[in-house]
Design a protein around this nucleic acid. Structure first.
Lengths: 232, 232
DNA sequence: ATTGATTTAAATCTAAAGATTTAGAGAATC
DNA sequence: GATTCTCTAAATCTTTAGATTTAAATCAAT
């Protein structure tokens, strides 16, 4: 599991100096990785990433000065392939979700056993994404809740269902920012016909103008609906 | 782990009759759960769910007749609180992602050890979401790839960055479907001023009308941007 | 102190959007 | 065969929307 061509280089960022020392010693004693730097400042950490280009960063995300999540995003923007494991005191689902969303390859609680942290480091350095099962469970619940609302609002009464296929085509072109002339050209019909369709769409969606129609469509899964029809 | 007030009721759906029998025996021998029904047809499975209202459904998602994912969605729509574990022969990231997205509480490969399946059933019946770590790794890679594109296009050149705060407020109201008059009223400024702002927004976003402006905003993380400022 | 950016505002004009009515042709339903 | 639905189209009219120019007040920064 833990064979590397060269010793993997690790950078530690944690505003708690005690915890920082503890993790550093843990890595030095229990693994063959090199701790190339430690810092209690997120901003300094970003500079050290640029300087040392470590393979892995352990990032505390509960820091007062700068948000650790923001720091992760900035490191990701550098596109150095730096792998990041978020360290946190909280198993808050929203935090976990946001960390993973912006590209963290792992998320470990500070209260977890040292072996858990080392295992996570090993896995991530081996190119995997690792979340302890207790946390991945949290993540998935949050994930499903997030996507549930979409399908829930879609299951109620979706005014989009009343549209005819032609009206769907017109609305699709509306959601791409086309005006009457462009829609007429693309559908090979007259501009007045397009106006008729658009007005009917407004009636059915109970809106007053194209912007509202487009917003309704986007907020009620129109794109998914159209793509589903195309792929079916 | 495996204490229930009443014996949990399980329904098996798998077009492979042999596999179906095998899983049924496995559950009968190794667990205390009741297999209340088995079927090789997805449509029949949905009917059986309505009839028996099982606690858990094991759903094969690689069936010829009907797509297992679609069947999962239909069961979810019934809102009976039925927990579903997807069974599949493939560890395809897209399949895993889609299954979890529509509400599957687990995803287990047919090639996995029996113990793995039983563990997944236990966990899910205990209210958890369970993905074997090999598969959750796949899931997360897919998840991050999906969200990466968003932040990537955001990191390039985001024309939204050139907007002034007032212009952001106006655009925010545009993305809610307001016309000039409504925006003027909400910002306590004249309609002509709003027009000026809107025209400046068009220039900066390089678009021709409000619909395109709204679409640009939504496709480039405008909502997130505004909310971030508010919460900061 | 002056420059530059932002916010405000008005006037004017053209173009586009939206509302409403009417209507014919074809397909599907009953 | 009659009816309903969909797609097509035009005419007319009113209302927004959008382009362009000009300009005053405010404010931050050099």
């Amino acid at each position: 599991m833990r064979e590397f061509k060269r010793k993997a280089r690790v950078l530690l960022i944690d505003d708690n100096a005690d915890h920082l020392r503890g993790v550093k010693e843990l890595i030095n004693i229990e693994t063959s990785y090199d701790v190339v730097g430690t810092t209690t400042s997120a901003n300094m950490g970003i500079n050290l990433v640029k300087k040392y280009q470590p393979d892995l960063v352990l990032m505390d995300i509960n820091m007062p000065e700068k948000d650790g999540l923001q720091a992760i995003q900035e490191i990701e923007k550098l596109e150095l392939g730096t792998k990041i494991i978020a360290l946190s005191g909280y198993d808050d689902a929203d935090l976990i979700f946001r960390a993973m969303k912006i590209g963290a390859k792992g998320y470990v609680l500070k209260t977890m056993a040292s072996a858990q942290l080392i295992y996570a480091i090993d896995e991530v350095l081996n190119g995997k994404v690792y979340l302890p099962s207790a946390l991945s469970s949290r993540f998935f619940e949050y994930f499903q809740r997030t996507f549930k609302e979409e399908s829930a609002s879609r299951s109620e009464e979706n005014l989009l269902d009343y549209l005819t296929t032609r009206e769907e085509e017109v609305l699709d072109l509306l959601t791409q920012g086309n005006n009457y002339k462009a829609i007429a050209a693309k559908l090979f019909i007259s501009e007045t016909t397009v106006k008729t369709h658009v007005n009917n769409i407004f009636q059915k969606l109970q809106v007053n103008d194209r912007t509202q129609a487009v917003l309704y469509a986007l907020n009620n899964g129109f794109a998914n609906k159209v793509r589903a029809k195309i792929s079916a």
